[in-house]
Design a protein around this nucleic acid. Structure first.
Lengths: 205, 205
DNA sequence: GTCTATACCCAGATAGAC
DNA sequence: GTCTATCTGGGTATAGAC
């Protein structure tokens, strides 16, 4: 049996992802849960607090199990393909839960007028991730897989921004679009893109 | 002397770009223009109609002068660099008007819950533009500039999605950020990105 | 074309009984 | 922890005088 606080959370995620934060009222949430709107305030002190809780949940889920750089290095020793697919699988596993997909859309939608969310996108989804890719390309230079004179930062952005656009395209521009189809195409598409870039900087034998 | 209908338009563009469509009321617009809210309805039949007018203006401005494919071909004959920089300059010229920058942000912000805007983004900003790049890469194959076995569609997306992300990053994720700085960096950044891709598929001599 | 006045609705939130 | 009842404020939009 799921308690009302959790039901409010679930329903809010669902409605916010469909209509945006401003497009959903406390009354609608209450009605969907099957309680009166005043009861919501026993669980969350304001509407904004629900959104905060949703973001906190997302941040926790996305950051709880990371692949440490040391492990990334080992994976890379096996092969670049192995490394890449391992990372992609982990990301897809996290994202593929229905709730996480919905929250991803909420975050993309609301990042334009919610300071906290915009900051999360800017630092975690963009900044921190790009740094990770820079480290990786630096590592690949050391291992002699790519040329030493190429720009790791540019390479990281050239690769990763493409993937971020695919995300935005799915969650905003083409919405609503089949989630499973998107997740299935994400891998092959980004592999093709990576191959183009990799081909440009790899050390030929 | 600028009439009130135009002032309503200008003020709406400004406020919508700052706070989003839902975040701005007819009262605010009227107050900023210096008239009563009821007067607005003499010029626009609803709030939605103002947004429609803004989108129509943007579409008109962005599509009124296109580089025809024939001209693109000639530019390409000069050199790839020349072609690329000509196109980029035209795009930057259109975008660099203050009003167009603001509307670009409105369009990116509102595309999640306005069918008409989402459709414009999907077909014109993404779909149509990608097709243009596909044509270009096909042309480059014919001219023997790039290898015939590479995938024009993937190349188009690999290139263009990067640029679209830069747009979203500036107008949403890093907002507010200096517009001029963005416009100045857009060229060099996308050239670097293009070089990486081009290097991967070019016909070596 | 602008004004005053107002209709009508729905939002977020709170007080207090049970 | 849920309810009924209510407060307060703001939203879009219209009617009709000037």
């Amino acid at each position: 049996m799921i308690n009302n606080k959790d039901r409010i959370f679930e329903v809010s995620v669902d409605l916010f992802s469909k209509h945006g934060y401003d497009g959903v009222s406390i009354r609608q949430i209450a009605s969907e849960v099957g309680i009166k709107e005043s009861s919501i305030y026993n669980h969350y002190k304001s509407k904004e607090a629900i959104l905060d809780a949703i973001l906190d949940y997302y941040i926790y889920e996305m950051t709880k199990e990371e692949i440490p750089v040391s492990q990334a290095g080992k994976n890379l020793d096996v092969s670049f393909d192995y490394f890449y697919k391992t990372g992609l699988e982990l990301y897809k596993t996290k994202l593929s839960e229905d709730k996480m997909m919905k929250i991803t859309r909420i975050i993309l939608i609301e990042s334009y007028h919610n300071e906290k969310i915009r900051n999360f996108v800017k630092t975690a989804i963009v900044g921190y991730a790009v740094e990770g890719w820079v480290e990786l390309f630096d590592l690949m230079k050391k291992k002699g897989l790519i040329r030493k004179d190429c720009d790791s930062k540019q390479l990281a952005e050239s690769f990763y921004y493409y993937g971020l656009f695919l995300l935005i395209q799915h969650f905003i521009i083409n919405y609503p679009e089949d989630d499973e189809k998107f997740l299935n195409e994400l891998g092959p598409k980004s592999v093709k893109h990576m191959n183009l870039l990799f081909n440009s900087v790899k050390v030929s034998e």
